[in-house]
Nucleic acid binder design. Structure first.
Lengths: 256, 256
DNA sequence: CATCTTTTCAAATGAACGTTTGAATAATAC
DNA sequence: GTATTATTCAAACGTTCATTTGAAAAGATG
C-alpha cells in the first residue's frame, strides 16, 4: 500500500521534472544569478539546450520552479481559511487561528518532500528579497489575492487595531518567517543549536516558537506615532536625502 | 556653521570613496552577482582597473562596503548598551530598552546620509540571506561579538524565559527587521502606502510600528514544545528526507 | 512499414565577466 | 629639478554565460 501510494504521488522523473528539481535546489544554494544553466543541466544529466526547449529560457525556468509550489500553497491557504470561517459561523476567526492558517500551511510544506520540503522553504524565504525585479514581481502577483483575503480576515478579527497597523504587522510576520526559513549561517551563530541536530528536527522545533512570536507581535500594544529611533531623525538630514532615496528605476519596479 | 560641519564630516570624493558609494548603491539594486565591476566603475567614472588596484578584487570590495558601515554600527551598539547598563545600576535593563538599543541604532542609520542612509539599511537587510557564502560568513563574524553580548543582556532581562527561547526570538526579531528594511515590492502590495509618500517618511513611520511588534513578540507566551504546523510532520516523511536536507557544501558553509 | 511530431544532442555564436599587464601620468620626497 | 612612489589608463587575457542552430534520435500515429 505504501509502495502504491508512493508511485501515485511521486512525479515521474521526466527531463522536465529533473530540471525543475535540480534548479530548485541550485537556485537556493547559489541564488538565481549565481546558478548557470550549465550547472543545472549538468547535475540533472540533461542536454544544455533542454532548458530552453522545455521552458523557453532561464527566467521562465525560475517562474516554473516557483509556480509549481506556489499554486498548491495558494489553493491550500484559501481552503484552510474557508474551513476556518465556515466553522466559526458568522463570527470572525480568532487572530491566532489565522496566523496558523497562513504560516502553518507554509511551514508544513517543509516536512513534505513532495511539496518541496525545506528546499522550497528556503527558496521562498530568499525570493522575497531577490535583487531580480521579475522574481519579486512574480511573487507579488502570486501572493496578491491570498494576502488581500488574509489581511481582511485579520482586520475583521482585530477590530480594535487600525487597518494600517494590521498591514504592517502582516509584513513583519512575513519577514520573521521568511528569515527563519532562509536560514543563514548567522542563525547558527545566534541560536545555539546542538551541532549534530538534523535539519528536519530543527524545522520541527521552529514552528511552535515562530507561532508564539508571531501571535505575540500581532497582539502587541498599538504604537505611539512619534517614537524616534536612537540617533533621531533630522540628524544630517536634508532635502537631498529625499531625492537620493529614490533607488528603483522604472524598468524593474513594475508590478502587474 | 552648517557648511563647515558638512565639509568636516563629508568624506572627500576620492576614487576609493566614489567606488564605495556607487558599489553600495548598485549592490543593493542588482545584488552582488548582478553587479559587474564595469557597472560600478562606469557610474563612478573611474577606470575599470581601479577596483582591483584599491581593493584587490570584487569580493574584497564588497567586504569594504559592508565593513565601512558595520564597524560604526557595532561600536555604537556597544556604547549604547554600556550606557543602558550603567544607568540601571546593577539591575538588568528592561527588555524593551534592549530592543531599542539594538534595533533603534540600526534604524537610526537610515536617516543619516553619512552613515549610509536607507541604502545601507537595504543592503544589510538583504545581505543576511545572500547566496554568497563569503558575505554571510563576513556578516556572521562581524555580528558575533555584539550579538553575543545583547543575547546575554536579553537573557538577564528575561529570567523567566529559557535561554534557547531568547535566542530564537532574537533571530525572529532580526528577520522581521531585515525584511522591513529590505523593502521588497511585496511590501507595497501588502501595506497600502499613500502612493506619493516619500521614502524618508515611510522610514519615519516604520520604527514605532516595528518596535511595538518586536517587543510584543519578545514578551510572548512560552510556546508548548509539540505544536505541529498544518499538514503535520510525518506526512510523506522518510529517512531519505534527512539525508537530502543537507544542502550546504563544506566549501561555503565555513564561518571563521 | 512509413510518416509525422517530439525530444535530444553536439557545436557554435556573440556578449559579458573578473582580472592582469605595462606604459603613461600625477603626486610626493629629496 | 630630479628621483621615487602612487595612481590612472587603454588594451587585452582567458573564461563563462544564455541562447540558437540544424541534424540525429526516439516516439507516436496512420
Amino acid at each position: 500500500m505504501f509502495t502504491a501510494m508512493a508511485v501515485i504521488t511521486q512525479p515521474v522523473a521526466t527531463t522536465r521534472n529533473r530540471i525543475l528539481d535540480v534548479a530548485e535546489r541550485l537556485f537556493v544554494k547559489h541564488g538565481y544569478d549565481g546558478t548557470s544553466l550549465r550547472m543545472i543541466t549538468g547535475e540533472a544529466k540533461v542536454n544544455l539546450a533542454a532548458v530552453n526547449y522545455h521552458f523557453g529560457g532561464k527566467e521562465a525556468l525560475m517562474e516554473a520552479v516557483l509556480k509549481r509550489r506556489l499554486d498548491w500553497l495558494n489553493e491550500e491557504r484559501m481552503r484552510v481559511l474557508d474551513e476556518l470561517e465556515a466553522s466559526a459561523d458568522g463570527r470572525p476567526p480568532r487572530p491566532h487561528k489565522i496566523v496558523e492558517a497562513f504560516f502553518g500551511t507554509l511551514i508544513g510544506m517543509g516536512s513534505n518532500r513532495e511539496l518541496g520540503g525545506e528546499v522550497f522553504l528556503k527558496l521562498i524565504g530568499r525570493s522575497f528579497t531577490s535583487p531580480n525585479g521579475f522574481i519579486r514581481a512574480l511573487l507579488a502577483e502570486e501572493y496578491r489575492e491570498v494576502v488581500e483575503r488574509y489581511k481582511q480576515a485579520f482586520i475583521n478579527a482585530l477590530p480594535e487595531v487600525p487597518r494600517q497597523e494590521v498591514a504592517w504587522r502582516f509584513q513583519f510576520m512575513l519577514g520573521a518567517t521568511a528569515y527563519a526559513l532562509a536560514g543563514s549561517d548567522f542563525l547558527q551563530v545566534s541560536v545555539q543549536f546542538d551541532s549534530d541536530e538534523l535539519p528536519i528536527e530543527q524545522a520541527r522545533r521552529l514552528w511552535p516558537r515562530l507561532y508564539s512570536f508571531l501571535v505575540g507581535g500581532m497582539r502587541a500594544a498599538i504604537p505611539e506615532g512619534d517614537l524616534q529611533p536612537l540617533g533621531g531623525f533630522g540628524l544630517g538630514l536634508s532635502m537631498a536625502d529625499l531625492e537620493a532615496a529614490d533607488l528603483d528605476d522604472a524598468d524593474d519596479a513594475a508590478v502587474a
